[in-house]
């Protein structure tokens, strides 16, 4: 099981967290076109590369944060960012 570096608790088992998804900015709801909105809702980049993604420390500090993970090696890089303005998908 992967160890995920929570910025508050420290390293935790991934089962303590909920994977929220790729981090994408929420478009301005009053100006976004349906295409932009649906791109935000449904389209994932899914790269075999470094990826910014949002996690929720469900069993721990109950904080959302964004971090960078390599989807091939499962390595993390750069410090995780607490509460980032990203990743509000259900």
């Amino acid at each position: 099981m992967l160890i995920v570096p929570c910025p508050h608790c420290g390293p935790r088992n991934s089962s303590d967290l909920r994977y929220v998804g790729e981090s994408h900015s929420r478009p301005d709801p009053n100006t976004a076109t349906p295409e932009q909105w649906r791109d935000y809702l449904y389209m994932e980049d899914n790269p075999a590369d470094w990826l910014k993604e949002t996690w929720y420390c469900r069993s721990g500090c109950r904080r959302y944060f964004t971090l960078e993970r390599h989807t091939g090696s499962n390595e993390f890089r750069n410090p995780p960012i607490p509460g980032n303005k990203k990743g509000t998908k259900a």
């Binding site: 909920r18 929220v20 929420r26 949002t54 929720y56 469900r58 109950r62 904080r63 959302y64 509460g83 980032n84 303005k85 990203k86 990743g87 509000t88 259900a90």
Partner: peptide, 13 residues
């Protein structure tokens, strides 16, 4: 609960 926290922590800090 998680939904409310999500909005408060990410989009409306």
């Amino acid at each position: 609960w998680e939904w409310a926290e999500n909005w408060l922590q990410t989009e409306r800090p």
